[in-house]
C-alpha cells in the first residue's frame, strides 16, 4: 500500500478534510496528488508547477466542498487543456447537535447517522445523557446547552444542524440562545404550536431579536403526520434536506421540473 493511499485512508477515517487529485485524461494518466490543509501535498501529477496549481485549486474546492474536473496545461497553465484532473474533495461530515436525551433523540441520532452526520447528543442531566442510551451517537456530552454551544460555536456552519428536543424552557431557551449565536444552518425546536408560542415569549425575554427567533423551525419537521420517534426523526431530516436544497417537500408526482 502506498504512502498516499495510506494517508488518504487515515484522513478519511478521521473525518479530516482532504482532496485527491487524479489525472483522468492526458499523461501521466492515473497520477495522483493528495492535498490537505496545512501540510505539503503527497504524490505528483508529473510536473512541479502543475502540482502547485492543482494543490491551490484543490484547497479552494475543499473549502467550498466542491468535487469537480478541471483542465490544465502540462505545466499547470490555466487556459490549456492537455490534462483533465478530477479533484475529489472530502469535506468533514456535517454536524448535528441534539439537545435533550429523550427517545426522540435516539431515533433522530440514528436517522442523522444514516445521512452522514457527525452526531452529538447533549443533556445537562447526567442520568439521561449516557453512552449506553445513545450508542449510535459519535459523542454524548453532559453539559448545559449554552455552555456546550459556546465551546463549538466557531465550528458550526451552514451545513450543520442543531435540534432542540428537550421541550422544557429551562433547557430550550439556553439551547436556542446559544444556537442563534452561531452560523449553524438549521435550528429546529420540538414542541406543539402552543409550546412554541410560549417559548417565543421566553426567548424574547431572554433578549433574542425577531430575526434570531425566525431562524428557529418550530414545530420541528415537515408535515408528515407521523407520531413515533422514528417518524418524527424522518420528518426533521426531511425538513433539513428541503431547506438545504430549497425545495418544497411536496410529492414529486404533483410537481414539474427536474428531480435532481
Amino acid at each position: 500500500m502506498s504512502e498516499l493511499y495510506e494517508r488518504l485512508r487515515v484522513l478519511l477515517r478521521a473525518g479530516s478534510p482532504v482532496a485527491l487529485a487524479t489525472v483522468i485524461e492526458g499523461e501521466p494518466i492515473g497520477a495522483k496528488l493528495l492535498v490537505e490543509p496545512g501540510a505539503p501535498p503527497l504524490g505528483s501529477l508529473g510536473h512541479a508547477d502543475l502540482d502547485r496549481v492543482v494543490a491551490r485549486d484543490a484547497l479552494g474546492e475543499l473549502a467550498a466542498g466542491i468535487t469537480s474536473t478541471r483542465h490544465y496545461g502540462r505545466h499547470g497553465e490555466a487556459r490549456e487543456r492537455d490534462l483533465a484532473v478530477f479533484i475529489e474533495a472530502f469535506a468533514p461530515p456535517p454536524r448535528m447537535v441534539i439537545f435533550g436525551a429523550v427517545d426522540f433523540t435516539a431515533a433522530l441520532a440514528r436517522a442523522a447517522k444514516l445521512l452522514g452526520y457527525h452526531v452529538t447528543v447533549c443533556d445537562a442531566r447526567a442520568v439521561f445523557a449516557t453512552r449506553s442510551r445513545f450508542p449510535m451517537a459519535d459523542e454524548v456530552v453532559n453539559d448545559w446547552p449554552d455552555r456546550y454551544l459556546a465551546t463549538v460555536a466557531d465550528e458550526l456552519g451552514t451545513r450543520d444542524a442543531v435540534a432542540v428536543l428537550t421541550h422544557d424552557t429551562k433547557f430550550d431557551v439556553p439551547a436556542i440562545s446559544g444556537a442563534v449565536a452561531t452560523a449553524v444552518g438549521y435550528i429546529g425546536a420540538m414542541g406543539s404550536r402552543t409550546t412554541h408560542a410560549k417559548r417565543v415569549e421566553r426567548l424574547r425575554e431572554a433578549g433574542l431579536t425577531d430575526e434570531q427567533i425566525e431562524r428557529v423551525h418550530s414545530p420541528i419537521g415537515l408535515d408528515l403526520g407521523g407520531r413515533t420517534p422514528e417518524e418524527t426523526a424522518i420528518s426533521i431530516c426531511a425538513e433539513i434536506i428541503t431547506l438545504r436544497t430549497g425545495r418544497t417537500g411536496a410529492p414529486l408526482g404533483d410537481t414539474d421540473g427536474a428531480i435532481h
Partner: peptide, 8 residues
C-alpha cells in the same frame, strides 16, 4: 442532466 449519483 438527470443522474442519481453525483461526482465522487
Amino acid at each position: 442532466g438527470s443522474s442519481p449519483r453525483g461526482a465522487g
